[in-house]
Design a protein around this nucleic acid. Sequence first.
DNA 1: TCAAAAGTGTTTCGGATACACCCATGA
DNA 2: TCATGGGTGTATCCGAAACACTTTTGA
Lengths: 251, 251
Amino acid sequence: MKKKTSFKEFLLRGAQLYMPCLSIDCVIFGFHDGQLKVLLMKWKDGDNWCLPGGFILKEEAMDDAAIRILQDRTGLNDIFLQQFYAFGDPYRDRNKDRLKIQGKYGKWLMERFVTVGYYALVEFSKVSPQPDWLSEECKWFDLKKVPKLIYDHNAIITKALGALRLSLNDYPVGYNLLPEKFTMPELQSLYETILDKPLDRRNFQKKALSLGILERTKERKTGGAHKAPYLYRFDKKKYEKAMKQGLKLGF
Amino acid sequence: MKKKTSFKEFLLRGAQLYMPCLSIDCVIFGFHDGQLKVLLMKWKDGDNWCLPGGFILKEEAMDDAAIRILQDRTGLNDIFLQQFYAFGDPYRDRNKDRLKIQGKYGKWLMERFVTVGYYALVEFSKVSPQPDWLSEECKWFDLKKVPKLIYDHNAIITKALGALRLSLNDYPVGYNLLPEKFTMPELQSLYETILDKPLDRRNFQKKALSLGILERTKERKTGGAHKAPYLYRFDKKKYEKAMKQGLKLGF
DNA sequence: TCAAAAGTGTTTCGGATACACCCATGA
DNA sequence: TCATGGGTGTATCCGAAACACTTTTGA
């Protein structure tokens, strides 16, 4: 099912290829310009935005399916990916009128689906959003400016954000959302954005450094209008070691 | 699909009644004799213990399906129920030999299933475990003495326990696991059991009372060999109010 | 009368919070 | 030169943890 697949073929073969009535939807978070972003797609035949999603191959692990979908959409591998909830309301995806025109071949797609939500944390700058053959566009939206999406996708994003907030206390999310080198104010801005509340600059720095997984480089970020801040990077070894134990932060 | 359903009829009609390739498994926790318990079932034709589970009717909400399964097995309604993870390894339920004898009618059941895990907290004394028509026995097991279960059910229990531990910090689980009136040592024992670590008696009491959702009755629990402890109950109104805000405990 | 459990209060400590001063930079 | 943002250190406070004495009860 790579690039050259036509929509008709997808409808025809889908029932053989995929597990029935089960889908995956991905909430892909990125961080840019002090804003938390989500990657959304737009169907070819309409102006409905939605979450990037897909189906599970009959012999494929669900997590692998999520990874595959993520790779297709972002071009990235080695992505931080976390399952957060399964959405099983029977009416969650009623309104498949758009697809009805496809007739009997798409029957499997017209069934009620349960979808499993995954959220991903990706480095904004490394992603070049790639629409698939079903979609006309794929781009980042500011989390606060997400339009009305199809089905229950808005609710899925809300739930994903809740899960992300919870995971702040256990995982150093900056490692996945920021470029290799970043300044302390950038890291703080990330946390403030996710939590949607201001944090004290000095206390934040203390807490961030106290984990012992950050390394200050000798470089500074120049070009800003003011004092040049240091650049930090994650110490991979210490990061992974800390990861295994769990961090027990507290924001 | 009530009591009188035969296994053959279940196999025959299942494909029409249920969503395909999707199941629900419930980890039902109870507390008794200072031990955390799980309710397990045993198939009729073998000595395989497993989690109580079931399927989702085609027009049924997934949460409702879980509630239905719980009610069937425990006789209780108004149960604390929480979805915690969807298990999607393609090999998680390989080994359906037991069912193969049923031939072509059970074909739908032989497919690969993704299962959604729910955990439930129930009041041990109120439950009279009820085997269904598929199972010969249904009874409580001490969590530390759970036998080897079918498929990945042991892993599901482990994951459920992890989720339960996390939820300790947000929800007063005692409300669901203890009888209406209980002593402070009983409440503490519950927490110690779930967390698998000892807690300081005096600090525990302070923390428990500080939530303001417990009410001390004038009764004491007599019959013990020592000083009679007070009986407490949850103040329903304050409990629900606190519930909405989230508790932010910390154990 | 004694061992074991339960009720209660005080001290201590550490992490979180609040807060102030100096430095670098481009406008 | 000055407004703005960045780097760093200290005082304070509150909640968690550690801890001791008294009371009740059945054996």
